[in-house]
Write a protein that binds this DNA or RNA. Structure first.
Length: 594
DNA sequence: AGCACGCCGACT
DNA sequence: GTCGGCGTGCTC
């Protein structure tokens, strides 16, 4: 017997081994086998008869039983194809880490009778989280709840009294939850992305919290949104799929319009005031306009917490004499100013540069901060409200949760996740226009979702204050009026006109060159391989002409039909398997979010 | 992804 | 004359 084994490598093929007579293996089972001189862990993805004369033998099993059912292995295969990732790295992302040392007795994933698929549901209403808790308390079906991040998973696990499958709990507990789920020890389990293929003992309910959240498609293989994987899982095993979101992704809304997803509970409910505040002539000297200042005073007086939404790295350093902006010598983008570490940081290459004292362009000494990053806003708020406690949630304090007891919390829009409905007294968007102007076809959608999340988090008693020069923007009007349909209609019209998702699928190829000529050659070579494939639009490689950039960068946009991954997987294979060629690095991203 | 082999520069 | 840079190719 021959076993085909997929390893956590960027290779698009499996390796074949002889199954020694003393071992019994099944597809979905993890094994240890020698590969290029090392003992590595892989997963058996197929078994077959054949001539094993020149093959090496499997060394041992990691667990005595498979950890993925044939159906889940099939979903992993699908996910690998869809995301242009290798099967091995896809599997590695979706199984619990192996126990070191001796193997442990585990239950094989149960074979579940397949139900006829039901239509996925989208729950939009303000009471959706309570409704979910009720549903999971009442139903006798097993359920898997997927949260966008570890703190959210922790909150839901506590609320539902369910074991956790995410990496926020000790490895042993995580493994116990996984194998316990297979045995039906807990009816409801909670996890993050890594739990998407968790075994469940029967017809199940699959739940995705914050359906629209970009955290459901993090960096690293497989580049696939958890929502899409759950849709496939629900399709193959007939599970009920419930998507929770007050402001869903444009794609999901579109599917509800087409009848592919059932839309439940869009009825309006109590809603806060959503006000805009003109920043003309204000933002230069101070981050807070009068309405936002008053809202903070008011909330502080009532003992309510305020969140200020500020993009990370929104502050830069410029020269007052010649107007030059300090940029990353490698990447060419404006460096983020951090007074705390006395440095200028690049958010692309993460390089840190010492704070300069003179302008290299004109030798001027008058250097000053431009724009409002979290740090500058924090300093300014502390100065304006000496008696109020202020905390910044950034890269450093990310996991601190709701920032202890601080009355004013500052951070990116993603921090709103941490506050259930009505938990905040006010939310202020310090510089919404910076978020709206991002060169990203999803900028408007994401702003809409952030504003909607803010309105939900403050509840009907609170207020949302938006500092902007664009008070009539679609996203703002929609949230102010608590009216979603019109926003999605316009957004979908725009997407259709320009050929963006969900009407066409995208893939980007980007190259960071060691040299101008080498990088150019690599991206052109890649583009040439895609020429002439029916159904594709391959746009000319764009040179990212960041001023003064040392490493030249290019990117290439590919548009295609739903079958885009199948169309380009084979032609791009050499670039997917060898990401570095000489000093040039190539990166291929399926369904990019920007 | 690691890692081994393989061709061109400065040194005991 | 070697040590060693990384550039290319292979792993059942």
């Amino acid at each position: 017997m021959i076993a085909d084994v997929a390893f956590d490598l960027p290779l698009r093929r499996a390796f074949s081994y002889l199954v020694p007579p003393r071992l019994v293996v099944t597809p979905g089972q993890r094994v240890r086998a020698d590969l290029s001189g090392r003992l590595r862990i892989g997963m058996v993805v197929a078994l077959r008869d054949g001539d094993a004369a020149d093959l090496r033998a499997l060394r041992e099993t990691v667990e005595p039983a498979p950890i993925l059912s044939p159906a889940m292995l099939g979903v992993a295969r699908w996910a690998a194809v869809e995301s242009l990732s290798s099967l091995g790295s896809t599997i590695a992302a979706f199984v619990p880490p192996p126990r070191r040392g001796r193997s442990e007795p585990v239950a094989a994933p149960p074979t579940v009778e397949r139900r006829s698929p039901s239509r996925p549901e989208l729950w939009l209403d303000l009471g959706r989280e309570d409704r979910l808790a009720d549903l999971l308390a009442q139903t006798s079906e097993p359920a898997l709840v997927i949260a966008p991040d570890i703190p959210t998973a922790a909150r839901w696990a506590e609320r539902l009294d369910a074991p956790r499958l995410d990496s926020g709990v000790p490895e042993e507990a995580r493994r116990a939850a996984w194998f316990g789920a297979a045995r039906g020890r807990a009816r409801v389990v909670v996890g993050t992305r890594s739990a998407l293929l968790a075994p469940l003992p029967g017809p199940a309910t699959l739940v995705l919290i914050h359906e629209q959240d970009s955290a459901h498609k993090p960096p690293g293989p497989p580049r696939l949104h958890s929502r899409d994987l759950l849709r496939e899982r629900a399709r193959v095993d007939g599970s009920r799929l419930v998507l929770l979101s007050g402001a869903p992704s444009v794609e999901t809304w579109w599917r509800t319009e087409r009848g592919e997803i059932e839309r439940a509970g869009a009825t309006p409910g109590p809603w806060p005031d959503v006000v805009t505040s003109d920043t003309r002539g204000v933002l230069r000297n101070h981050p807070l306009t009068l309405p936002l200042t008053r809202a903070i005073e008011d909330a502080a007086r009532r003992g309510r917490r305020v969140a200020l939404i500020v993009a990370r790295g929104a502050a830069a350093l410029g020269c007052d004499d010649c107007g030059a902006l300090f940029r990353c010598p490698d990447c060419g983008i404006a460096l983020g100013l951090s007074r705390a570490t006395r440095s200028l940081d690049c958010r692309i290459c993460a390089s840190a540069h010492a704070l300069p004292t003179i302008c290299p362009a004109c030798a001027g000494h008058r250097l000053s901060a431009i724009g409002w990053g979290p740090e500058r806003v924090e300093a300014s708020v502390k100065k304006r409200f000496p008696g109020v406690s202020v905390a910044t949630l950034g890269a450093t304090a990310r996991k601190a949760g709701p920032a202890g007891a601080a009355q004013v919390v500052i951070g990116p829009a993603s921090l709103l996740r941490a506050y259930p409905r009505g938990k905040l007294g006010a939310v202020g968007f310090v510089a919404l226009d910076g978020l709206l102007r991002r060169p990203d076809f999803r900028a408007s959608e994401q702003v809409f979702q952030s504003l909607w999340a803010a309105a939900e988090a403050v509840g009907p008693e609170g207020r949302v204050i938006i500092q902007t020069l664009l008070p009539d923007h679609d996203a703002i009007r929609a949230v102010r009026a608590q009216e979603q349909g019109e926003f999605y209609r316009r957004e979908l019209t725009f997407r259709q006109e320009v050929g963006y998702p969900p009407f066409r699928r995208l893939c980007t190829v980007s190259v960071t060159g060691a040299t101008e000529a080498g990088g150019r050659r690599l991206i052109e070579e890649c583009a040439a391989r895609l020429q002439g494939i029916a159904g594709l639009d391959v746009y000319p490689a764009a040179r990212h002409g960041a001023p003064g950039a040392r490493r030249p960068r290019w990117s290439l946009l590919i548009k295609g039909p739903d079958t885009l991954p199948e169309l380009i997987g084979e032609p791009l294979k050499p670039y997917l398997e060898r990401r570095r060629r000489a000093g040039d690095v190539i990166e291929i991203e399926m369904d990019p979010t920007s």
